[in-house]
Design a protein around this nucleic acid. Structure first.
Lengths: 149, 149
DNA sequence: CCGTATCCATTCCGATACTG
DNA sequence: CAGTATCGGAATGGATACGG
């Protein structure tokens, strides 16, 4: 990435893909959610080449999705942490995961579960809700484009 | 795509990205949600090269995310429609869009709104919920990997 | 430990031309 | 209208070697 190909598309989906739609980027963010913090940790977990990882991490930092924290006294140890902007991608990852759970592996066969400790149970399936809190029907949706000023 | 690079990762996120994580694929699906059906329609809206579009559409059909319907008498007019599997990607697109609304454009400045006709109001922000229906805290989550059999 | 620099093979993508 | 075929340039990604 980041090919700047979708830069001029006035669409939040295209713009978001521009920032995290890369082949590796979302997996890096996934592992960050799952506890990875160090360069070598991402490298090992993902099996990604060093240069690619360095490139993606610096882009994520540049875009404010992760931050680089110095954790050594000598300035040779760093941690990469999700910012609030990055943590706010959790719904995206959850939606992707739940779709794969259902359509790739099938219900009950997913290779990992995300459990809420409080209840000991998996998260509820994410569903788009209307303003009144009830699930929306696709047929009832209307796209409204903002006019140019 | 579809580079088969993530094929062996036992992870629903990686597997889903394998199917729709391509640069163009999610935008094709987006336009399908927004009403595009014909080959030329996707071509024009996206500004994508014919061969790339043909490739992506055939993969989507192959993967059961879209279906190709003959709508001409002569067999020269087709429509591409989302299957149930494809329509079930709506939460993914919604999560991506809402993140971009907030973090790329800022609240109230998004270039498009998705309105529920019934209420005339935008969809609610998608948030992962626990089993009890309340929003989850990231700190309260635990990843549980399935053991091999 | 955390990168950068370089090389090379592969792939991607757009443009164009052509077919039914 | 809905593709297929081909071509060349660009970018990607992996491996390796090197440096702070």
């Amino acid at each position: 990435m980041a090919r700047k190909r979708f830069d001029d598309m006035p669409c939040s989906i295209a713009q978001t893909l521009n920032l995290v739609g890369d082949w590796w980027t979302l997996l890096i963010i996934r592992d960050a959610f799952f506890g990875a913090r160090r360069f070598a940790e991402f490298e090992t977990r993902l099996g990604i080449a060093k240069n690619i990882l360095a490139n993606r991490l610096s882009q994520l930092v540049e875009n404010g999705i992760m931050q680089k924290v110095d954790i050594g006294q000598t300035g040779t140890h760093y941690a990469y942490e999700l910012t609030e902007k990055g943590r706010d991608l959790f719904p995206v990852l959850t939606a992707l995961r739940q779709w794969g759970d259902k359509w790739v592996y099938g219900e009950g066969c997913a290779p990992m579960d995300v459990i809420e400790r409080k209840s000991g149970r998996p998260l509820a399936r994410m569903v788009p809700l209307g303003a009144d809190g009830t699930p929306v029907a696709l047929e009832d949706l209307e796209i409204r484009l903002k006019e140019k000023s």
